[in-house]
Amino acid sequence: MTTDQSIASITADLTDEIQQVAKQYPIRRSAIMPALYLAQDKYGTVDGIVYQAISEILDVPEIWVFEVASFYSMYNRTKLGNYHIQFCTNVACMLLGADNVLANIQKRLDINAGETTDDGLFTLSCVECIGACDVAPVMIVNEKYYNYLTGERVIEILDQLEKDIKEAAK
């Protein structure tokens, strides 16, 4: 997957914003993480073309950009579905039945963790604790938390999300 952009178009899109955020730091290298976020917000993913553009805008070696993009899990180097499900499987959630909920999600979407449905609607990621253990089991879909999940409730949520996006597309 690529962002389908050219270096010129990325530079045109992002130079001002990246230069702006770089002012928050005494060295340009510090702006690599926010620059990657800016690119991701705009194009959905980050890839080689983006690294090259950022390296030019910030005047840092491209490998520095790649190093960061490949270390941190929240930079998407492959395209995600419309809905990105981040499902917590850590201990507090596990104790309250996360494994069963996860099995239901996988069955309903017919994908495993790390995969995207064929229609491009859902990507499923299993993640570590997302700081909502008191309302476990939990997941984040795009930026929204869903609490107290059960096997049934999660299916209702997925059905609703699918309905929402199909309505919106009409």
């Binding site: 060295i27 993480m33 840092v60 520095w64 190093e67 960061v68 270390f71 899990s73 930079y75």
Partner: peptide
């Protein structure tokens, strides 16, 4: 604000500082 990007280890203070410097945590 410096936004982290999904790495538990960046909670360790020296890794956190590396991350603000724009490096791997």
């Amino acid at each position: 604000i410096h936004k982290g990007a999904g790495a538990y280890i960046c909670g360790e203070e020296t890794a956190l500082l590396e991350s603000i410097e724009g490096k791997r945590g």
